[in-house]
Amino acid sequence: MRHGLENNGVIQDVFLSPVPGGFCLHANGREALIVLEGETQGYLALAIDGEDCEVRYAIAGAEIFLHLDGRHFHFKHHEPVRRFASTETGETNAAARAPMPGTVVRIAAQAGAAVAAGDAILVIESMKLETTIRAWRDGIVEAVHVTEGATFERGMLLVSLVEDA
C-alpha cells in the first residue's frame, strides 16, 4: 500500500522497494531506480535512473519542501492509514455521546456557534476527572443537548454538529 504525496490537489501513490544497490520507486504507474550517493542533514545526492540529482529538503509535520533541478516543490504527505480514513462518515459522526455517567461542568460553545476541529464544546466531570468534549471536525454546533449542572447517563446524547454549509 502506498503513501500519498499531494501536490496541487493531485495525490500520487508512492512506494519504495529495495533493489541491489539502491531502491526502486513505484509511482505514477512506473518504476525508477534510485541510488543514494550521499546524504547529510537536509541534503541528498541521488542518481535517479542514472541521472544525478541533488536535493535540498525540509520537512515540517506532514509537509515536505524540496529543491532540485533549480526548482521548488511542495508536497503534503498522506501516510497510508490516515489517508484512507474517510472524513465524511455521515450520521455516525454527527453527535457525541457521554462515555460514562457524569455532570456537565461548563458549556463552551452554544448552538449555532461555528467551531474548528479541536475547539472545546463542553466540559464534563465524572469520577473526579474533568474531560473536555472537543469538536471532532470543523462545523457548526447544531445543538447542545444538556445544560450546565445537569447529570447524564452513559451513552446520552451530549452535542451534535453539522457541517458548515
Partner: peptide, 17 residues
Amino acid sequence: VLMRVLGAASMALPSLR
C-alpha cells in the same frame, strides 16, 4: 520530471526508506 521529484520526496521522507 515527476518521477525525479517523487523519487526525491520518497527518499527524503524517513518512513518510506
